[in-house]
Design a protein around this nucleic acid. Structure first.
Lengths: 147, 147
DNA sequence: CTTAATGTTGATCAAATTAGTCGTGTTTAG
DNA sequence: CTAAACACGACTAATTTGATCAACATTAAG
């Protein structure tokens, strides 16, 4: 399960991606439209801003704008930012590898091989699916693409 | 990330699957061999027993045995048992569907389609990979199998 | 230059989940 | 009988999740 926070982040980004160019959206409007607790959304948008996905304008007629094009923002990037590594085991994360504390040999680890397949296939999907894809309703990848 | 508990459960089951037929393994031996906290492992094995994956014998010369054949126990089954639904969103779980509280229309949900792909592909792997596969070091599924 | 609308920040909090631990059983082979 | 095993419910500590709050900084419009 992904966290609620990631889900909110993705929905907020999709809302921004749909806004007319250079029209900032208000936190409050996004919160209402997407049914996200307003104060929580503030935090999330700040995270996204610190990571260069969005920009904000302060003061009257301020709000949030998508900084990068919707075609360049993947689900994987957003999820890693909010939830941390996608991999099912720490020793399978490419971006944030950590040795499993209790594992004597990664080579010999019997469960690792199975989860490596899972990690590869979810990466293939999530690092390919962009906000633009989601807006277009396009299926991100079919099994055939993974071959 | 899967929970430590699930990882322990899988490793314990693999240990049992490797034991000579009708030789019960002691909790303590599994715990030591797999570097699992002993008291925690007791709990986990009880869960597995209640769900019919293993049996135990009490008293002197007791211990645990695999109840079903290693070919019939999938990673997916074990993970669902311990961690709950595999699906990344509650509304995508086949075994434990729950409506997303904040979602107005599942049809229109833009993030759902992407995660539906993820759900399908991880199910394809985890519901296919058995303990026997893991012992054989066999790769569970390649991308090509998903097409 | 005032003011109202907006985002900013760090702290704090409650609930749930995770990862264990403990004590006191009960069962059974020898 | 008894030592070696599993059984089981309650308990606890640490972490993560999902927020909420108060006080503040910036800006456009009038």
């Amino acid at each position: 399960m992904i966290s609620r926070k990631s889900k909110y982040a993705l929905r907020a980004l999709l809302a921004l991606a749909q806004a007319p160019d250079n029209t900032p959206l208000l936190i409050g409007d996004i919160a209402e439209r997407e049914a996200i607790p307003r104060l929580f959304l503030e935090q999330i948008l700040l995270d996204l801003k610190r990571n260069g996905l969005v920009v904000s304008r302060r003061g009257k007629s301020g709000g949030y704008l998508l900084l990068r094009r919707a075609e360049t923002i993947t689900f994987g990037e957003v999820l890693r930012l909010i939830d941390g590594p996608l991999a099912p085991l720490p020793c399978l994360s490419k971006m944030a590898y950590r040795r499993c504390a209790d594992c004597t040999s990664e080579q010999a680890c019997l469960i690792r091989k199975v989860f490596a397949e899972v990690a590869e296939s979810t990466r293939a999907i999530l690092d390919t699916a962009t906000l633009a894809d989601a807006l277009a309703g396009r299926a991100p990848l079919t099994g055939a693409d993974l071959a």
